[in-house]
Design a protein around this nucleic acid. Structure first.
Lengths: 117, 117
DNA sequence: CGGGATCCCAGTTGATACTG
DNA sequence: CAGTATCAACTGGGATCCCG
């Protein structure tokens, strides 16, 4: 993230975790399609760079939201999937998503200040 | 936010809305203490600059999450408060906050990568 | 294939000064 | 009091190259 928030609020930590672009999208995919390999994720998330995808996965893993399984073959195969904590998080995110979709229908994000790009 | 996410996902819009530092903190205060004036908010959110606070309030207002009431007196008095939509949002944020606190007790954010500062 | 190291740019923030 | 304007500084992201 760019700035920082009052350290006292744990929610800020969890939001920092989710905040980066695509983070929720990654969780969405892992929740929707089950465990996936790095390359598949990269292709599934349109426009993400290797560096950022790696970073996001590391953060999610550090928070115990996803697991990482690495086979030491050549070429390597690394698979990521949701942990229990990740699934728990998805539930809340789904609720948030439901609200977001409704608000969108109601035009809540039509203001240019909230532009997608 | 800095980057951009898949435009198709409304949740990204709502996360962009919440994401900026202090945004959830502002909502928290408005939810907790009721409508507040600009200056009070500024003092309540430690370290925020005038410019950023203004921008956040504008975004939240644009999304219909908070209302703004201005009295054209001198000196002016501007008050902000949660709308129904804002209260609805707080419910989900409270659920997220509950998870965040539990995770914190479980050490989910102890990794330096998720550092608060 | 998965990802670490670099370089560079754009956007965002912080600080400061000014105004109705 | 409640902002707006401006500028400098920082950070995060994209692109690229390389390695095990």
């Amino acid at each position: 993230m760019t700035g920082k928030s009052p350290p006292s609020c744990p929610m800020d930590a969890i939001l920092r975790l989710l905040m980066g672009p695509w983070t929720t999208y990654i969780l969405w995919i892992l929740n929707d399609r089950g465990p996936q390999r790095f390359g598949v994720l990269k292709r599934a998330v349109p426009g993400i760079s290797t560096r950022v995808l790696t970073e996001r996965l590391r953060m999610l893993q550090a928070a115990g939201v996803i697991w990482r399984e690495q086979s030491s073959t050549i070429p390597p195969a690394v698979t990521y999937g949701l942990t229990e904590r990740g699934k728990e998080l998805r539930e809340v995110l789904d609720a948030l998503d439901e609200i977001a979709q409704r608000w969108q229908r109601e035009g809540a994000f039509s203001d240019p200040r909230l532009a997608t790009a």
